[in-house]
Amino acid sequence: MGEVTDQIVEVVLKALAGGVFVLAFAALAEMLTPKRLAGVFCAAPSVALASLIVTAGIAGIPDVLASARGMWIGAAGFVLYCLVAAPLLGRWGAWWGALAALAVWGATVAAGYALAPAGLLALPAAAVPASLSRPGTPELPPPPAPEP
């Protein structure tokens, strides 16, 4: 029961932080001239910043690392989404064009998630300080001593 409550609190905190960060980037885009830069800010890392900060506070740095690795795939899908959406908007209109492009994003991230190695851009284990490992993570047994 306690674990479920913690998970709900985590999702709610991420939602609140995400809303605040999206507002902050939207305000920046609103203040910025020239206005044609607004499109760039539609792909600002607002949700990522909010989510990673809350993740670091609750789950620790190893989960931030895993989330960032997943974000690689999501961002590659986002680039494809934009490349596909631009011609589809003209052909099928805003709603259908944007929704069809969203299907492309979904297919890309599903394929990327299944095929990309989980340790993409992983640092060697020795580079991760022991103090950053998640609480409750079982310790690995020491390597066997070399035979004389």
Binding site: T55, A59, A66, R69, G74, G77
Partner: peptide, 9 residues
């Protein structure tokens, strides 16, 4: 977290 990371973008 890796699956959740997909939705950060």
């Amino acid at each position: 977290p890796r699956a959740g990371g997909l939705f950060l973008a």
